[in-house]
Each structure stands twice: as structure tokens, then as C-alpha cells.
Design a protein around this nucleic acid. Structure first.
Lengths: 327, 327
DNA sequence: TTGTATGCGTTATCAC
DNA sequence: GTGATAACGCATACAA
């Protein structure tokens, strides 16, 4: 009762092979029969069964994003769903679908990767939240499974990745704070094992040398609370703050407000809410939508053309109220 | 070279049928051969090929969430990714995977549903953002495809759904505002065609009657900007605000602050940031994580047991600073 | 250019 | 309790 390729073949008075060709290699079929087959296809509204195609062609047309349990903060980050939206949209355009999953807390990080691979569920992975030493990358390289990383590290320079200019962004933030008169800055960075933190530290370091200011570096975990706590803890030891995420910057501002202190604060990301909080947030804008799109594009390019593509996207300083000083 | 069921069969000196039984109906195999087969399976690390299983069993073990283009605000809502996380996690536990996608702007709303169905890509859908009249529901019902709705409407009472007690939540908000001395409230509701808006209007109405206050109802679109604009527009016509989302409440507060007015404001959702903005937000807490989990559970229950389950989860008033009046 | 035939890796039906 | 075998729906090597 389900309409399949042989029903189409029968109705168009051709073989199933020809129907298949019309769908996958139309140029190999004469115009006349092609038209006949196509008309039957559209009349019956036939759509090939993806499961059968996958089994036969050994391609699932599926891409997985496995959010590590350790990167749970991603789910509370407004930023993240925009990334998901763009990645999934671009994948659709390229004929792929996105499977979103998290790993089980008690399992090893790569267990989920292993299962997905062994079940032949997907053709490739998007690896988020790249670490300086990343066992997921090791695993996927070893098994020769296509993937694209979001972020980049020193160790794995030969892989497909998309990243933003984190070093340049941190540099811009540092320069801006220096111009606002800061000489001892509290730098609330992300977790130390994340590659992104390394780049930002580097860029901030560079600005500090050039602009002749010092800074106190601490590691947060990207969410409000850590920004709040780190700020409270080091109060009095700085005259400006650079936070590696807008949420941490918002936490920092809250701490400052509680203490009745007003100092320049710069965040990172430019999430939607940053322009609506009070004071509105000076921050480094990342083109997250473009990151999502490029992740999809680079991955599919790797899969279909075996081409390793690396993309580094520019960032931008957005000046708003939080870096205005009223001393 | 790929390890499959017949390789296992050969090594365990049984037929493929027996291997399959060991995997799917172990009780139909004698203990002795079962153990032998199992040991080979674990020794070789064999995992059944999902594509072959899907083709044969006509079950993909995949569930899709198609985010309508019209519900794009979901992607900027912190709320949403928590929902995704819990749904996907619960689905995994139940042996399913989550496909996340958006529909193409220029297509009809149900086109993507049609494609997913025709390609036999998924076993069911999670329908978000339920409308009072929802063509997606009509389509899925007609085709007899399993789905669970998040939200409920008057028209489709016979479907599996998960919802929160929106009516009760709005009632609580109304009562709270009345107790804070409000007599003319600005009610910034969600879009009029969404079922959730209807329930909240109903609950708020009820509180207004009981507590003897009046209100001005307007429809926003859940994001900051609309809360901001509606508040600005009606300034002077109210002495308290109830917004149907925390983001709109934050927008409303921003507008009030700009005008130098301080009035009680209550939001809805209790997104993570609501406790960290200033003033912190009084709001109706929704158990979004539980909503996500239940969506998965109810859907799989429908698929595997053909059981239609409806769940309505309780909400809670969280009192914070934004409803404290300093007149 | 088109058709025939085979197999992708499973599960399920039927014998034994 | 176990095995042989036929599908599931499609794509492709090979033959014509």
C-alpha cells in the first residue's frame, strides 16, 4: 500500500533502475522517459524512503550535535539556540538533518559518540566547546569520522573548524578599557581547559602590554553566578572588568551595583538581552548565526568533497552604557 | 569488513535468526546459546545497524521537533533550550533520538511535516507553540501520525499533550498584583492566536473579577521589545503590569525606568536570568524541564502503547523585587 | 539509454 | 529452541 519505487516504475512502464536514475542521476536518462517518470512521481507525490536509501548508500544524511554534560551552561545561554537554529537551517538546505542530544552524566564523554557511530546513525558531528586537549577529536580522527569543531586549539590544526577571532576580540576589549582609564582590570575568563579561554587570554595580554595596564585573571564558567562571585571576591583590587561572556558581565554588574561601585565593564558575545539590561552592556559581538551556518557548510564540504575548511570570523566592539564611567 | 549480524552468527555457530532473537527477544533463546551469542557480541563490540533495523521494522526511533518560522522567538528564549535538553535526554533514555529543525519561511507550515513523514524519517512529532486552530494538528490527525502537543486548546481535546496550568498562573499573578494595591493593570499577553494566551487571559479575568480590579489587555510577541513598547504606549493608564513572559516583563521594567516610574511588575516563566536582573523579577515559575520530559514520555507512550496521555503541570508564584512598590 | 539482478543488514514467518 | 529464507525499498554493476 505504501508507494515505492517499483510502483512508480510500473506506472511509468520503466524499470526501477530508471526511476532511481531519474531521481539521482537525471542526466543519465533520456529527456522523454525522464519526463514520463517525473510526471508519475509528482502525480503520486512519491518521496523516496530515507531508511532504504541510507541502508543502500551507507549515508544517513544526519549530523549529530552531542552537548557534553560538562557544557550544560550552553543550554542556559541564549546564544546557543541561535546557533542551533542556523546550523539546522543550513543543514536542511544542504539536504541533511540535525540530531541534537546530550551525553549521559555517568558515561565517558565519547561513549555517546561511539554509540552514534556504531549504530550508523549519522554521517558526521559538530563538536562544540572545544578543549585544548580534546578526546572527542582524538576519537573521531582515529575512526576517520567527519566532524567540524566550533573553536580551535593548538594541538589540532589540521581539522575542519569554525571560530571567531577571540584573540582579536579580547584585544579590542582591553584597548577599550584602557582608553576608559582602567589600569588594573579584573579579567573573568571562561574555564581554563577550553581553547577559547586561551585565545582570549592571549589577546587581552597583548592589549595589556600595548596599553600598559595590568590585570587579574580568574576563571569562571560563563554564567551569571560566577561573574557575580568573582567580582565580589576581588572587590577593591581593580578599576574595570572584562568578562568572557555577557552573562558573567551581567553578574559582575550586579555585584558592583550591590556594592555601590561604578566601573567600566565589558562582556563578550552580544547576546540579545545585552542591549536591554540596565546599564546596557558594552561587549564584543560574535556573529553567532554565521558561526552556525559555517559549521554546517564546512562539515558537509568535508563529507562530500573531503575538503578541510577552516573559518575564522571577525568580531566587533559594541559600545554601550556599561563602559561609561561616572566617577 | 563491517561487523554485522551474520558475522556474529558465524562466530557463535548459530543462524542470524538466533542472533536477532538474542538481541530482541532473549527469552526465546536457550540460556546456553544466548550466553554464547552474547559473549561474541560483546567481544566484537557489535551494535546493530539502525538503518537496516529501521527499514525492516518500519520504525526509525526518531522524533522531530519542527520549530515554525513564526515561532522564531523560541530561539531567543532561554527557556527553550532547557526544554530541548530535557526532551532529548528523556528521549534518549527511551531509546529515541531528537531531530531538531525549522521550517523554511516561504513554505507552508505543514510542508516540513509532510516531507518528514513521506521520507519516513521519524516515528512522531513534538508540536510546539500550539494555536487555537492548528493546521499541524489537523494534518497529523488526518495522517494518523503520533504526536504530542505542548499546550492545549479547546478544539483538540482528544490528543496527547503536556501543558502547564497557565490559567492558574495568571490567576496567581492577578491576585498578587491586587494585593499590592493595583486597580488598573496593564496585561501584556502573548499573541492572540496562541492557545496559551487564551488560558492566561481566562485566569487573569477570573482574578480581576474576584479581586475587583480592571485591566487593559494587549498582545505582545514574548520578547523584550514588545513589552517595552506596549508599556510606553499606555503609560499613565495603569498602576501595575502583568506580562506573559519574563522577557516582556524585563522590557516593561526598562520602559518604566526610563520614565522614572515604579510600579509592581509580574512576569511569566521564571527564566534563569529573572533572578539576576535588577530589580529581580516576580514571576510565575513554570517547570519547563518537567514539561520537556513529559513531552517525551507521553509521546513514546502513544507510539508504543497507543495510549493518549494528557499532563497539566502546576505553576508557582515567585515573589521577588519587581512587585515591591515604593510609592 | 535502459533493464536485470544483487545486496545493503535486519527482522519475522515458517518450517523443522 | 533453532535455522532457512523472504522481505523492507532502494541504488548500482553489469549486460543488453
Amino acid at each position: 500500500m505504501n508507494i515505492n519505487i517499483s510502483k512508480i516504475a510500473k506506472m511509468a512502464r520503466v524499470s526501477t533502475a530508471t526511476v532511481s536514475r531519474v531521481i539521482n542521476n537525471p542526466e543519465k536518462v533520456s529527456a522523454k522517459t525522464r519526463e514520463r517518470v517525473e510526471s508519475v512521481i509528482s502525480k503520486l507525490g512519491y518521496v523516496p524512503n530515507q531508511q532504504a536509501r541510507s541502508l543502500r548508500s551507507q549515508q544517513t544524511k544526519m549530523i549529530a550535535i552531542i552537548v557534553p554534560h560538562s557544557a550544560d551552561y550552553l543550554f542556559t545561554y541564549p546564544y546557543f539556540s541561535i546557533f542551533l537554529r542556523e546550523t539546522s537551517l543550513e543543514l536542511s538546505r544542504l539536504g541533511y538533518h540535525l540530531i541534537l542530544t546530550t551525553d549521559e552524566p555517568h558515561n565517558s564523554v565519547i561513549d555517546t559518540y561511539r554509540v552514534f557511530t556504531d549504530k550508523r546513525l549519522v554521517d558526521g558531528f559538530v563538536v562544540l566547546d572545544l578543549k585544548n586537549e580534546d578526546e572527542r577529536v582524538d576519537f573521531l580522527k582515529l575512526r576517520n569520522i567527519p566532524f567540524v569543531a566550533v573553536g580551535r586549539n593548538e594541538k589540532d590544526k589540521d581539522i575542519s573548524f569554525v571560530d571567531t577571532d577571540n584573540e582579536g576580540g579580547a584585544y579590542l576589549a582591553g584597548k577599550h578599557l584602557a582608553r576608559k582609564g582602567c589600569s588594573h582590570v579584573l579579567f573573568i575568563n571562561g574555564p581554563a581547559d577550553q581553547s577559547v579561554s586561551l585565545w582570549r587570554e592571549r589577546g587581552f595580554q597583548k592589549a595589556a602590554q600595548e596599553m600598559n595596564f595590568t590585570f587579574l585573571g580568574r576563571n569562571g564558567d560563563f554564567v551569571e553566578k560566577s561573574g557575580f562571585e568573582i567580582t565580589k571576591k576581588h572587590l577593591g583590587q581593580f578599576d574595570g572588568i572584562f568578562a568572557a561572556s555577557d552573562l558573567m558581565a551581567i553578574g559582575a554588574l550586579k555585584a558592583l551595583r550591590e556594592e555601590g561601585v561604578s566601573l567600566p565593564v565589558v562582556g563578550f558575545d552580544d547576546i540579545p538581552i545585552s542591549s536591554d539590561v540596565s546599564p546596557s552592556l558594552t561587549t564584543i559581538h560574535q556573529p553567532i548565526d554565521e558561526v552556525g551556518r559555517r559549521a554546517a557548510i564546512n562539515l558537509i564540504r568535508l563529507i562530500s568533497e573531503d575538503h578541510t575548511e577552516t573559518t575564522i570570523l571577525p568580531v566587533e566592539l559594541i559600545v554601550r552604557e556599561s563602559s561609561e564611567v561616572k566617577r
